[in-house]
Amino acid sequence: MQIEHSGLSFELTIDTTNVWEKQAHKHSFFELVYIKKGKGKQCINHNTIDYKEGNIFFLPPLDCHSFIIEEKTTFVFLKFSDQLFEKSNSYEINTKNWFDDISYILRNYNKTTGNIINDQQDKDKVIKIIELIILENNNRDRFSSVIIQGLIIGLINILMRHIEQNIYRTAKPNNTKFNLIIKHIQNNLFNNEKLKIPFLANKFNVSKTYFSEYFKTNFGSSLNKYILISRLRVVETRLLYSDFTIKQIADEIGFSDTSHLSNVFKKYYQISISDFRKKGEYQLLKNSTLANCSV
């Protein structure tokens, strides 16, 4: 599998073409794809969907994708890395801490394929922001980097609104407090201190003795199980869409060692990590319906 790298913190490409010549590939950066004109099919992680004018797709690092073009298409590719949010000159703002807090969700949100924004008002906003980024990128001066940084921050916050709405669907839609608890857990999934019941109970004004029952009543499973399953979903994405070793994954997710991760994984999936990785990649390839999506 080819992994595309970029040495830049931000890169904008506009491409009008009748034929997609790249093989299916992954990147080491975030990429937003805006279909300005045209139609066809996109393959994301070996799932195939139609695309058309106005669609917006968001691809975290290590998502595999390619296109089959049915009608001449103008693509706008907006690529950025974590470095964009680090202050590199006196005009830029250091937003690294903000991006660190949300990057977990951006990297690991539900990877159901498709147009990420369905609300027309927000879609119009994103398209306007993209057009402003294009305009600023074509007429750069010493202020352009901070202006583009600010525009991308606005764009990401709109994306986060829709990603969080998808997360909230797992909870009761009218329970604002519980939705905020789910959001907090997802934003702090690897921070054990902020996931302890005393911290959560105090932050969300729920009795410590009642919190476990409150969570289970609203979600249908225990807090510990929800956290564990959420972490295992990250393990899944790492096994299927990265070249990380099991030790690297265990260290990142917060398991004490590879044996601990392997035992927990096998308990819940009824298959070893190594077999899951082999079988998972095989199934992804087997389920691909487009020859151009083969890897």
Rank of each mutant, 00 (worst) to 15 (best):
N108T: 05
S288V: 01
Y282M: 11
L84H: 01
S90N: 07
Y210F: 09
I105Y: 06
L223E: 03
Q42A: 13
I102E: 04
D275A: 11
I229A: 07
N115R: 02
A291R: 13
Q186H: 15
C64P: 01
D257M: 04
T258N: 05
I3L: 14
D251K: 12
N205P: 04
N224V: 07
D101A: 15
F199P: 00
L200D: 00
N292E: 13
S256T: 11
V76S: 12
G40E: 11
K36D: 09
K72A: 08
I152H: 00
F57L: 10
I152G: 01
F215M: 05
E70W: 00
Y91S: 10
K22G: 12
L84N: 01
E281V: 15
I181M: 10
L284Y: 05
I129N: 03
N138K: 13
E86C: 14
D63A: 05
E164R: 14
N192E: 14
V295L: 13
T17C: 08
L189M: 12
N55T: 02
K22F: 12
E53L: 03
Y91F: 15
Q83K: 15
C293I: 02
T176M: 14
T112M: 13
S274A: 10
E21Q: 15
Q23W: 06
E92A: 04
D243C: 05
L284T: 00
I105F: 06
E193A: 10
L135K: 15
N166Q: 15
S103I: 02
I134Q: 10
T48V: 10
F58H: 02
I227G: 04
E131Y: 07
Q83C: 11
F77N: 07
L8Q: 14
I49N: 11
F204A: 06
S294N: 12
T73K: 09
I93G: 02
T170Y: 10
V206G: 01
Y226F: 08
Y226G: 02
I102Y: 05
C64R: 12
N192A: 15
E281P: 04
Y226E: 01
I44R: 03
G280E: 02
Y282L: 12
Q248E: 15
F276D: 00
S144C: 09
R169V: 11
I227R: 08
T95P: 02
F85L: 05
I129G: 02
F57M: 01
E252N: 10
K247E: 15
Y226R: 03
N138I: 03
I68C: 07
